[in-house]
């Protein structure tokens, strides 16, 4: 993935004189239009904190617009309100793709939405990360949580490849691993549309050449990615998000595993198509910047 110039069409949005203040103001305005019911002191029923979201979105906004200079296509496919499941591909050592999808839903959608990613279980055991995830609505990926969130008309963010997806090595970054089937049963049970999406650029940002599971075990994480420069710090490589048209499946969610797998394969094929389109466009226009803004 090529790097794009840092000064882009985004500058006017952020303000020329005091970009940080401008971003903060934009975040405040967007927070007040979120679908969450915060209590008087800014907490919602899942423990999401308005202040923590504000702080988190400042970081995510900067990463989204300036560090990974993410281009976003098809954001209009995400329902403006109501239950829906975003289903995407993983790549690149750790979940940069999740962070950028959350940022897109917050910064690109009008009105903004908070995407709740289904966090891996190990996150709850890690100091600070557990706290941060909980306060920003990134709760543990349990079927009960997913069901509750959808029944509360929230937006769910799911990566059916799981941690196997973030373990992809650099040369496999655009491949798709095996998909779990839970998200599809959930979509059927709750009548939720599935919005497939692809993230391109994660594999370039963290070009993993190996994964150290023994070091991960010591640190309490599934693995530690290793890059050619050893540390798994993300490079400022341009990212691209492509959302596809919503998919609606009919059923009860109690269908046989083979019937569900067939439908999962359709979702997977959609994501593979989105990746292929993204790669083709990128090859055709490597350095063009256009990010839809509201």
């Amino acid at each position: 993935m090529t790097r794009r110039p840092k000064h882009t069409t985004l500058a006017p949005v952020l303000g020329e004189s005091d970009p940080a203040l401008s971003l903060a103001q934009e975040i405040e305005a967007r927070l007040s239009r979120l679908e969450l019911s915060f209590n008087a002191h800014g907490f919602d029923a899942y423990g999401v904190s308005r202040d923590s979201l504000s702080a988190g979105m400042r970081v995510m906004g900067w990463l989204y617009r300036h560090y990974f200079t993410v281009r976003c296509h098809g954001i209009e496919h995400i329902p403006s309100r109501g239950r829906a499941i975003l289903v995407g591909n993983h790549s690149g050592g750790y979940a940069i793709d999740a962070g950028m999808a959350i940022a897109a839903c917050f910064f690109e959608l009008d009105p903004p939405r908070l995407a709740h990613s289904m966090a891996d279980r190990f996150i709850n055991r890690i100091p600070f990360l557990a706290q941060l995830a909980s306060r920003t609505g990134q709760i543990t990926g349990l079927p009960q949580h997913a069901l509750q969130l959808l029944e509360d008309e929230r937006l769910l963010l799911v990566f059916p490849e799981g941690t196997k997806g973030t373990q992809k090595l650099f040369w496999n970054r655009y491949s798709l691993g095996q998909f779990g089937t839970g998200f599809l049963r959930l979509a059927l049970r709750t009548g939720s549309p599935i919005v497939p999406f692809a993230y391109l650029g994660g594999g370039e940002a963290v070009p993993t050449i190996a994964n150290l599971s023994f070091l991960g075990k010591i640190l309490g994480v599934p693995y530690v990615p290793v890059t050619p420069y050893l540390l798994p710090l993300p490079l400022p490589m341009a990212g691209e998000l492509r959302f596809g048209a919503p998919l609606r499946f009919s059923g009860t969610g109690d269908e046989s595993q083979s019937a569900i797998t067939e439908q999962v394969e359709l979702v997977k094929a959609c994501i593979a198509d989105l990746i292929a389109h993204g790669l083709r466009d990128r090859d055709a226009q490597p350095a063009v910047v256009s990010s839809p803004r509201d």
Binding site: Y46, G47, R121, N124, R125, A130, I139, T140, L142, Q144, H145, Q148
Partner: peptide, 8 residues
Amino acid sequence: VPDAALYR
């Protein structure tokens, strides 16, 4: 426990 659901 760390991996229990909220709203049990």
